[in-house]
């Protein structure tokens, strides 16, 4: 077989434009090269801005969330596609995919109980969801490359929010405004409502499960044999990644996930912030897993990860929700 790079280069010619870039484009571009009194930013600012843009534009779960769309697409970070490098399990010698549905249900129900005890509230459309998350960008890098994002996303998607991203702790974060989506750009625009207006808040797990199934995207494509509720689970993870759902909704979400028959405790896990926890998830043929991670002691939701087997670096992958809350103004913290 021909070398895949040669094949890719050859095949690429099929996608070539019919001719050169039009002269009108040159005119349009060059017309913009006029003095401006100085570009903003110190040396190096551009490259840092670039990093911030990457974080903001990065679709959580890459392609999968992109397909799920909706709220998920607006979030700066969620599950990460872990690269497949070598063989390995979930660490600690624990067998991945141990079919302990009852244990999974127990973890989820504990998490639901934590939420149910909170004072109910509902977001106002003009508020913002504040989140601080960390997401592994490259598990193979030494030291680990992680994207840190702080964001204020408009609850109804109609107000300009803000995303601040950086990859190194000593780096200045780069801010990017999150402009409301223009008409007709919802398909790809990232600033969709932070909280879906139609999310059930009656606390009924069955209603929530139906909602998850109705709003789930197509089944994940990067696992060989997705389970019937794979997309449902991913949808739940997307919603949990928001962090600040009304507690009634979050509580029902956890219980709804517990109703998915294939959900099991998949073992010990470490979230992207290095916090140890217990993972609850779906295990697919071949050992791939989608996981939600909960604090082992408090059962609080920490984050999630995708483990695409074989993957010995699983414990470096994923995303972690560090802080979240609903605030009135961009820049405020809960």
């Amino acid at each position: 077989m021909t070398d895949e790079m040669t094949m890719l280069r050859d095949a690429g010619t099929e996608l070539d434009p019919p001719g050169e870039a039009p002269a009108a484009l040159r005119e349009r571009v060059v017309a913009g090269f006029v003095p401006d009194g100085g570009a903003a930013g110190a040396p190096g600012a551009a490259s840092r801005a670039a990093v911030g843009d990457v974080i903001r534009m990065r679709r959580p779960v890459g392609r999968r969330l992109a397909l799920v769309g909706g709220v998920a697409a607006s979030l700066a970070a969620a599950l990460v596609i872990a690269p497949s490098l070598g063989l390995g399990g979930s660490g600690e010698g624990e067998e991945p995919g141990l079919p302990i549905s009852a244990a999974a249900a127990a973890v989820l129900q504990e998490a639901a109980a934590v939420e149910a005890e909170r004072e109910p509230w509902a977001p106002r459309p003009d508020q913002f969801v504040y989140r601080k998350v960390v997401e592994t960008l490259d598990v193979t890098a030494e030291p680990l490359e992680a994207g840190h994002v702080e964001s204020w996303v408009s609850v109804d998607g109609r107000h300009t929010g803000l995303s601040k991203g950086w990859t190194l702790p000593d780096e200045d974060p780069v801010s990017s405004p999150l402009e409301p989506c223009a008409e007709g750009t919802e398909e790809w625009c990232v600033n969709v409502p932070a909280i879906p207006a139609d999310i059930p808040t009656d606390g009924d797990p069955d209603v929530m499960l139906r909602y998850l199934r109705d709003t789930a995207g197509p089944p994940p494509e990067d696992v060989p044999e997705p389970l019937p509720d794979s997309a449902t689970f991913v949808r739940a993870a997307d919603l949990l990644a928001i962090g600040s759902l009304p507690p009634q909704a979050r509580s029902a979400l956890f219980e709804a996930v517990a109703l998915i028959p294939e959900v099991t405790v998949t073992g010990d896990a470490v979230d992207a912030a290095g916090r140890p926890g217990v993972a609850v998830g779906l295990t697919y043929a071949g050992g791939d897993r989608d996981e939600l991670i909960f604090d082992r002691e408090t059962n609080e939701f920490l984050g999630g990860r995708q483990v695409r087997s074989p993957d010995e670096l699983a414990d470096r992958a994923g995303w972690a929700l560090l802080e979240s809350g609903v605030v009135d103004k961009v820049g405020q913290k809960p």
Binding site: A21, L25, R28, V29, A39, G41, A45, A46, S47
Partner: peptide
């Protein structure tokens, strides 16, 4: 075809704005 020209235009517009930060 729909976006290639915009990408080129935007790339050069951004590059121009950031030209003083070029190493």
């Amino acid at each position: 075809p729909e976006h290639a020209e915009d990408v080129v235009a935007e790339t050069f517009a951004i590059a121009f704005r950031r030209r003083r930060t070029y190493d």
